[in-house]
Simulated assay, not measured.
Amino acid sequence: MKATNVESLFGLMDEAITLLQTEVELTYIEALSETLENLSFEAKAQQVEGLPSIEAVERLNSLYKKMNLDALDKEIIRKSIQLTFIKATKEDKLQMNHQMTPDTIAYLIAYFIGEIKKDKTEKLHVSDLAAGTGNLLNIVVAHLTSRGNEVTAEAVDNDDLLISVAANSGALLGFSEKIHYTHSDSLQELLIAPSDIVVSDFPIGYYPVNERAKNYQTAFPEGNSFAHFLMFEQNVNYLKESGWGIFIVPSDIFETDKSSVLMGWLKENVHIQAFLSLPADLFHKNGMKKSIIIVQKIGEKSLQAEQVLLGEIPDLKNAQKMQSFLDIFHNWSAKMI
Rank of each mutant, 00 (worst) to 15 (best):
M100Q: 10
A142K: 04
I292L: 14
G245V: 13
N210A: 04
E306V: 15
V156C: 00
S291K: 03
A3S: 09
E42Y: 13
I293V: 15
M96S: 10
P194L: 07
E7A: 15
S53Y: 00
Q234Y: 04
M96A: 08
P250M: 04
E233W: 15
F220Y: 10
A213E: 12
S200C: 12
A227Y: 02
V48C: 04
E7P: 11
A110N: 14
A155E: 00
E25M: 15
E222Y: 12
Q307S: 14
I293A: 09
L173A: 07
A3L: 09
D92A: 11
L172D: 13
A319G: 03
S146N: 10
F175P: 00
I337D: 01
D257H: 05
Y216Q: 03
S260R: 09
G132F: 01
N168A: 05
Q82A: 14
Q323S: 08
K65L: 15
A71E: 01
A305V: 11
F232A: 02
E7Q: 15
E55N: 13
R59C: 09
Q99A: 06
T27A: 04
L173F: 12
L191D: 12
H228S: 05
V236R: 06
G299V: 14
D252C: 10
L316K: 02
H143D: 14
A213I: 13
G243P: 06
P203G: 02
D70Q: 03
D157W: 02
E268S: 10
S259A: 14
G134E: 03
F175D: 06
E189C: 08
E15W: 04
K66P: 00
S80K: 03
K79Q: 05
E255A: 15
H183R: 04
I293G: 12
Y206W: 11
N168E: 01
A280Y: 07
L309G: 02
N138R: 05
W244Q: 09
V236H: 05
L161Q: 11
S53K: 00
N5R: 08
